[in-house]
Amino acid sequence: MSPNVLIPIASHRKPRRPSASSRALRAGVTGGFFTLAVTGATVPADAAEKPVSETREMPTITTALATSAARSADTAERVAFDYERQGLQDSAVSKAAESADKRKAEAVEAAKAEAAKKAAAVKKAKAAAQAKAEGIKKADGNRKAKEAVQTRASRSSERTTLAAPSTGTSAPTSAGSSATGSSATLVAFLKAQLGKAYVLGSSGPSSYDCSSLTQAAFNQIGVDLPRVSQAQSTSGTQVGLDSLQVGDILYWGSAGSAYHVGVYIGDGKFIGAQNPSTGVVERPLSYDQPTGAVRVL
């Protein structure tokens, strides 16, 4: 056993009372700089200082910590900027898509309007062509109907030989059976046209209808006649069929509405453009008895 004995010596130091002072530590990052604020109550002057062993060390504020805090702020700001930029991009894309859809719709409507316009023009052209065709068809039908009437009248006369009426009409006198002067010129022209074709509406010289032949014949002697048979039947003085003279105009039908004319050439005969089947011919009065006559010479 050791000769030295350790005897504990009681400490006469009074236990330290808890410090009345209180401290608060506030730290933060402002504008990338770390700030520290310490607040506390006033410590009495006679207060004993705590030994180092009872003092806690405060964490050291280093440059790395401040830099980290600044980077966090920059990151947050950058993220916010990225969100805002993405929102602007999405809005621009949406507006561009809406504008493209609008232009496409307008182009479709314009194409439809143009197609409708072309269809209306085609329809109008077809209607005009149809109306023109109907007009031509109608005119051709009227012409054929008139030719048919004249042909039937001519054929009816050919089938029936008409005798001279017992009263009111007799054979022309001998005084009207010879042609002299202008009458002879008229008859000579008419005989020169014998055998030429009958064509409705034609005015010579290779073909005639009934009224154009009489008009052309009288033009040879300076007499101007109307073009159509209705007007020619009232152009001169009405004469009876029993007192005809060379050059008198014979008509069939009523005066003013005659449908056929010819020229008396004497000896009970006349020359006329009868119909498409006979052309210009010379016939006796009995071949087709006229209704009346007018004298223009």
Rank of each mutant, 00 (worst) to 15 (best):
P3N: 15
N4A: 15
V5G: 03
I7G: 12
S11L: 07
P18I: 15
S21Y: 07
A27Q: 14
V29G: 05
G31R: 11
F34R: 07
V38L: 15
V38P: 12
T39M: 13
A41K: 14
V43Y: 01
A45N: 05
A47G: 14
E49K: 13
V52E: 09
V52L: 09
V52N: 00
S53T: 13
T55G: 03
T60I: 09
I61T: 09
A66C: 11
T67I: 13
T67N: 09
S68P: 03
A70G: 14
A70M: 14
S72K: 05
S72L: 07
D74A: 10
A76Y: 02
E77Q: 14
V79E: 11
A80D: 05
F81Q: 15
Q86F: 04
Q86C: 05
Q89H: 12
A92K: 10
V93F: 10
V93H: 07
A96M: 10
A97V: 11
E98L: 15
A105V: 00
A107H: 06
A111P: 00
A111W: 06
A111R: 09
E114N: 01
A115V: 01
A115P: 00
A116L: 06
K117T: 06
A119M: 02
A120E: 06
A131G: 03
A133M: 02
A133D: 00
A139L: 12
A139D: 11
N142G: 05
N142I: 12
K144N: 04
A145E: 11
K146I: 03
K146H: 03
E147D: 13
V149G: 09
R152E: 14
A153P: 05
R155T: 10
S157I: 01
T160S: 08
A164M: 07
S166D: 14
S174I: 11
G176T: 00
A179W: 04
A184F: 13
A184T: 00
A184W: 13
L186R: 04
V187P: 09
A188N: 12
K191F: 06
A192G: 15
L194D: 15
L200G: 09
P205T: 11
S207P: 07
S207A: 15
Y208D: 10
Y208C: 09
C210N: 02
C210W: 04
L213Q: 03
A217T: 05
F218N: 01
Q220I: 03
G222A: 02
V223P: 09
P226W: 04
S229G: 00
S229M: 00
T234D: 09
S235V: 13
S235P: 02
G236F: 08
G236E: 11
Q238F: 03
D242H: 01
S243V: 10
L244V: 09
Q245Y: 04
Q245W: 00
D248A: 04
I249Y: 05
L250T: 08
Y251L: 00
A255R: 15
G256I: 01
Y259D: 13
Y264W: 11
I265D: 01
D267I: 01
G272H: 08
A273K: 08
Q274Y: 05
T278D: 14
V280T: 01
V280W: 02
L285D: 07
Q289E: 01
Q289H: 05
G292Y: 02
V296M: 11
V296P: 02
